[in-house]
């Protein structure tokens, strides 16, 4: 592939003329990808909004059984992970290899903490018979079908989010390895920057999921 004309280095790939052009392309590419992710989650948000407005009482009652304290703790964990991610990007700008690794490790740990707490919450739902299926039962409402619908959407939305967290942890681990072998410098740290965009996006999705699922109508009337 005519490598004698354009020598392919990690810094500038052969299709680009300059490093800044390559960085612009990578960043724009990730933003466009995140827009597709918004549309992807959007289908579920739409379904949730439609059914919540149709069945406000049952959805309210179902929502009040969620553990808001744990949800709030998890929100705090994710916000902290976004903070450590920003610090990793900053360390990338300055080209400090060890600092990058420190903050990536912290981000990964916080990611696992979030997933662990989420897993505990799901286990709670299982114990309380709030997992849709034959043994499903929600106290205090005759409309078991609609209550199941709430929990179906709860599991689908938090499940899809958790899946994105798992992918995020995978990306962070890859970045950690690449940093360890010394791929990134102050001149070239685009993957950390772009990986950070993804991590913040997954964070923001949760910032919307938490109030939508846990907080709306928290103190409303009993069904």
């Amino acid at each position: 592939m005519a490598s004698e004309v354009h020598v392919e280095t990690l810094a500038v790939r052969e299709q680009f003329d300059t490093a800044s052009q390559q960085k612009n392309a990578s960043t724009l590419g990730m933003w466009v990808f995140l827009i597709t992710e918004i549309m992807f989650f959007g289908g579920m948000f739409l379904a949730y909004t439609a059914y919540r407005s149709w069945y406000p009482n049952v959805f309210g009652a179902a929502s009040r059984t969620l553990n808001a304290t744990i949800g709030a703790i998890n929100t705090a964990v994710l916000l902290c992970s976004s903070y450590t991610m920003v610090l990793a990007v900053r360390a990338g700008q300055l080209g400090r290899r060890k600092t990058i690794m420190l903050f990536l490790v912290l981000t990964i740990i916080l990611g696992f903490v979030f997933l662990g707490i989420k897993g505990y919450e799901w286990w709670e739902k299982f114990e309380e018979h709030h997992v849709p299926g034959a043994s499903f039962h929600l106290e205090g409402t005759p409309l078991q079908g609609q209550a199941q619908l709430f929990f179906s959407l709860y599991f689908a939305m938090t499940g899809l989010h958790a899946l994105h967290m798992v992918v995020g942890v995978g990306i962070m681990s890859y970045l950690l390895y690449q940093t360890y072998v010394g791929k990134y410098t102050a001149e070239y740290y685009t993957p950390i920057d772009v990986g950070g965009l993804y991590w913040h996006f997954v964070d923001i999705i949760w910032i919307y999921l938490f109030p939508l699922l846990y907080l709306i109508d928290r103190h409303g009337p009993k069904p």
Binding site: Y51, P132, G145, Q148, L149, F155
Partner: peptide, 12 residues
């Protein structure tokens, strides 16, 4: 999993 989102029997 028959989650009910498109099923009128469950309110979908």
């Amino acid at each position: 999993f028959h989650i009910g989102i498109f099923d009128p029997a469950l309110g979908g």
